[in-house]
Simulated assay, not measured.
Amino acid sequence: MELVNCEEVKGRRKKIKERGQWNSNIEFLLVVAGNIVGLGNVWRFPYLCYRNGGGAFLVPYVVVVVTCGIPLFLLESAMGQYTQQASITCWEKLCPIAQGIGYTGVIMRVYNCMSYIVILAWALLYLCFSFYAKLPWASCGHTWNTENCEDFDALNKYNQTINSSLTSPAIEFWERRVLAISGGIDKLGSVRWEILLCAIAMWVICYFCIWKGVKSTGKVGV
Rank of each mutant, 00 (worst) to 15 (best):
S168M: 04
S168T: 15
S168Y: 02
S168W: 01
S168Q: 03
P169Q: 02
P169L: 02
P169E: 03
P169M: 05
P169W: 01
A170E: 05
A170P: 01
A170Q: 05
A170S: 02
I171L: 02
I171T: 08
I171S: 07
I171P: 00
I171C: 04
I171K: 10
I171D: 06
I171F: 15
I171N: 06
I171W: 12
E172Y: 09
E172L: 00
E172C: 02
E172N: 05
F173E: 00
F173T: 00
F173V: 01
F173I: 01
F173S: 00
W174N: 02
W174T: 08
W174E: 05
W174C: 03
W174L: 05
E175C: 09
E175Y: 05
E175A: 05
E175K: 07
E175N: 07
R176S: 04
R176D: 13
R176Y: 05
R177T: 08
R177I: 02
V178Q: 04
V178H: 01
L179V: 12
L179G: 03
A180R: 15
A180V: 10
A180H: 08
A180K: 10
A180N: 13
A180M: 14
I181S: 11
I181D: 01
I181T: 08
I181M: 13
I181A: 01
I181R: 15
I181L: 15
I181G: 01
S182C: 08
S182I: 01
S182K: 08
S182M: 10
S182E: 06
G183E: 09
G183R: 07
G183P: 12
G183L: 04
G184Y: 03
G184T: 04
I185G: 00
I185M: 07
I185T: 04
I185N: 00
D186Y: 07
K187Y: 04
K187D: 13
L188D: 00
L188C: 02
L188F: 11
L188E: 05
L188N: 11
G189P: 03
G189R: 05
G189M: 05
G189Y: 06
G189D: 12
S190C: 10
S190H: 09
V191L: 11
V191A: 08
V191S: 13
V191Q: 12
V191F: 10
V191P: 09
V191W: 04
V191Y: 14
R192S: 14
R192E: 15
R192P: 12
R192Y: 11
R192N: 14
R192V: 05
W193Y: 10
W193D: 12
E194L: 11
E194K: 01
I195N: 03
I195Y: 13
L196S: 09
L196T: 15
L196V: 14
L196C: 13
L197M: 15
L197V: 13
L197P: 08
L197K: 08
L197Y: 07
C198T: 13
C198Y: 11
C198M: 11
C198V: 04
C198D: 08
C198N: 00
C198P: 05
A199L: 14
A199C: 10
A199H: 03
I200L: 14
I200G: 03
I200P: 06
I200Q: 14
I200S: 06
A201T: 07
A201R: 07
A201Q: 00
M202T: 13
M202A: 03
M202V: 15
W203P: 03
W203Q: 09
V204K: 04
V204Q: 09
V204A: 14
V204I: 14
V204H: 04
